[in-house]
Design a protein around this nucleic acid. Structure first.
Lengths: 251, 251
DNA sequence: CGGGGGCTTGATGAGACTCAAGAGCGGTGG
DNA sequence: CCACCGCTCTTGAGTCTCATCAAGCCCCCG
């Protein structure tokens, strides 16, 4: 099996002061969103913050994963690998997203830290026990899973029907929507992953991704400040190239 | 917007005797799998059996869908349509699968009866109310949704990485696994959908699907008794062509 | 027997992959 | 400070897979 070498997973348990749930940045949207104070106290007992270096493997496909986690900071990629080494990224997870696939003792895909990552981890068995008692967690986890399912099915449409240009435009828009910020001349955002990883996400080769980015730049639909930082001067114009919207004309 | 014409949805409420939950064929695996007798009685009050003709639209993308349902018999396809008419099937649902996306008031995709279909439908609002009280339903729905998510991500790998031959082999194996039966000379199964729909599912054109099927037949990896009924003489041989397994050699 | 839908098969071409080379860029050490 | 290295990224040339366009076949049904 061909597999790219990645640095050994080196999670570091963060020393005290352990951040309290009250001030947690992802409190509103994470799996604990519906928990009351008493429930947070319970959760607090089984949680631990872990840090992963960029490129570190969080769990490997097929591996028994002893924990589940919420992403506090950073970006986590989920990928599946075919026996001959072909890889497909099946998810890109941002802060407040949940990783670990509750109810699954064996990971169905690799989870890798695409950047520096901080997780709020829970022991799997303890989490399951708590979830059996707490409606609020199960309810939120169901919502999150349904969102993930919708996102995955959206991506099926991208992989099955869109051409290279549409794929790249859709990807750029997704990044801008999730982590971009408005500037005087449009939207500015940072690519959280390499060209090669974008290819794995879009079902394209690195060369095709690179070529499409160059073409979009030439067409002034995007501009690059660095290889990672880009500007979208006109969101609507880029969206028109993504294949999701009806109107191309300016009637 | 290009959209294939489909016969109007003509659900028929089945007359009494309404099948009781005790003898239900999908009792073990449906969303009600964990319900006790008392809970079934409650569910029974809000359920209704509906029949859909082959080709009938169950819900349309973007439409407000007033119900959720378990599939009792038949096959339901879920598809998304891009504005220019390109379609991607994002799920193929079999008996005991759940359709309707609880918590979603607006359908994210078309659901179409690929064959004659019988649904066990629940009014959405009433179902949500019951779920809020019954752990058992929510627990099972979470499991089902996680299974759907895993299946969708598996399909991402197919769409993003596999070539036409591998896609078709994977599809045939999936059908055989879900609804095939063993025979003296291998596995026999029925394609629940047309070549054109297979194309929509696999991100291929109907011509490519047809050509690949012909090639597989020529290679004696499958045989067709009718255009829909096929035999797999050697499952392992077909699986070796699907790209999911390491060993191709006969060392 | 004629019609239509689903399916098959062939010819052709476009889009994406593969292979290959080189440019950009950040880090490291002499 | 600069030279060198490694990695990512870009660009070019050639190839191949699959989509497109176009007939024609099969089979069921009236």
């Amino acid at each position: 099996m061909i597999r790219t070498q990645s640095s050994e997973a080196t999670p570091r348990i963060l020393k005290s002061p352990r951040p309290g749930c009250e001030n947690c940045a992802i409190r509103e949207r994470a799996v604990c969103a519906y928990c009351g104070p008493a429930e947070l106290t319970q959760l607090d007992k089984i949680k631990s913050y872990r840090h992963y270096d960029k490129g570190a493997e969080i769990v490997a496909e097929g591996e028994r994963s002893p924990f589940v986690a919420s992403i506090v900071t950073g970006v986590v990629s989920l990928s599946k690998t075919l026996p001959d080494g072909r890889r497909q990224m099946v998810g890109l997870q941002f802060p407040s997203d949940f990783v670990g696939g509750a109810f699954r003792s064996e990971a169905a895909y690799d989870a890798t830290a695409a950047s520096e990552v901080t997780l709020c981890q829970f022991d799997r068995a303890a989490f399951d026990t708590i979830m059996a008692q707490m409606q609020s967690i199960k309810t939120r986890l169901l919502e999150i899973t349904l969102d993930d399912l919708d996102a995955a099915r959206e991506w099926l449409t991208l992989l099955g029907q869109k051409n290279a240009r549409e794929k790249v435009c859709t990807f750029l828009l997704m990044i801008a929507r999730r982590s971009g910020r408005p500037e005087q001349d449009g939207m500015i955002a940072e690519l959280p992953i390499t060209r090669s990883e974008i290819g794995e996400y879009l079902g394209l080769t690195i060369e095709t991704v690179s070529r499409q980015l160059s073409k979009l730049k030439a067409a002034r639909l995007i501009d690059f400040q660095t290889t990672r930082r880009f500007v979208i001067p006109d969101i609507a114009a880029l969206a028109a190239e993504a294949g999701d919207t009806e109107d191309h004309s300016v009637l």
